[in-house]
Amino acid sequence: MFTVIASVVILGVIGIVFGAILAFASRVFAVEVDPRIEKIEDILPGANCGACGATSCFAFAEAVVQGKLPANSCVPGGGEGAGKIGEILGCEVEESREMRAAVRCKGGLEESQQKFMYLGVKDCWAATLLSGGNKACEYGCLGLGSCVEACPFNAVVMNKNGLPEVYPELCTGCGLCVEACPRGIIELIPKEQKIYLACMNPGKGKTVTAVCDVGCNGCTLCANPKTTPSGDIKMEGDLPVINFQNNKNLIAGAYRCAKNSYVVEVSFASVEYDIKKCNGCPDQPKPLCVKVCPVKNCLTFDEDTKKAQLSKEMCIGCELCVSECPVGAFKPVEEKEGIEHVIEEKM
């Protein structure tokens, strides 16, 4: 009995003494953390992606509070997150544009030529060390998935054709895959952008077509002012460059592409056409809309009614006719989500 009491007392005393020391120590050694740091950390996505330049989300919060990093430099957090951080810090924050990654290569295993069979380590950087990689095209995706490994949000997936696919809804635009790609063919583009050129080979037509079926051969059709009146697609050397700033409709340019080098992710394609308004452009040999439409048999001139006929099945929604029509018979479709025309099929 005495042993029982003694053990309880001894352990109790040891416990109380250590407890007291710890309680005392927590007072003496208390570290004052700025409460704003914790609040900001709660807002952040917490993926510790490092796109802002800080080592972790906590380090970013610390740096923002200390003013070392701008509050809007968290790309995955987006404009909303930046606004909340601004509220905590009591300052105005310029919204950062939401970006997403885009793989600028369309030449998978089926479409492109291989220089040799690569059986080494499944890593694009390792493959580049071996005479520049296995793809015959120097600007082509090696398809070994370094970007898939790098993505902390599982937004990049390797498809069966050996090309990485980015899911725009999962992509936060942190840019880790951009750095992970040894060929530099992943690019950040604005999130609302659904059309981009998936080729980075600046070579002349023949050199590109020799290694890839879908590489841009520099035919300049997409950059033609008739196809892209906004001028947002411009040729730089033998490769078109898209200006994403204006967010204009570029479907016509992508449609005209001779090599199918564009990626088009829109699933809507049509215009509203009020045939009653059409006067058939009497002073022209052919109605202007028929002349401008890039799709064959989409807009046709009906000799009997002297009016332009629109085939909705053929329309790709390029909206070139909208600005061309002198009487305003065409209108862009406002609720584009409801239309189930898959543009890829039409092309």
Binding site: F2, F18, G19, L22, A25
Partner: peptide
């Protein structure tokens, strides 16, 4: 009293507090 049988629990107590400290 011979309290050596308490060593495991006493040591755990000590180590835990020590690490915290």
């Amino acid at each position: 009293p011979n309290l050596t049988f308490l060593r495991t629990i006493a040591f755990i107590l000590v180590i835990a507090s020590l690490v915290q400290f």
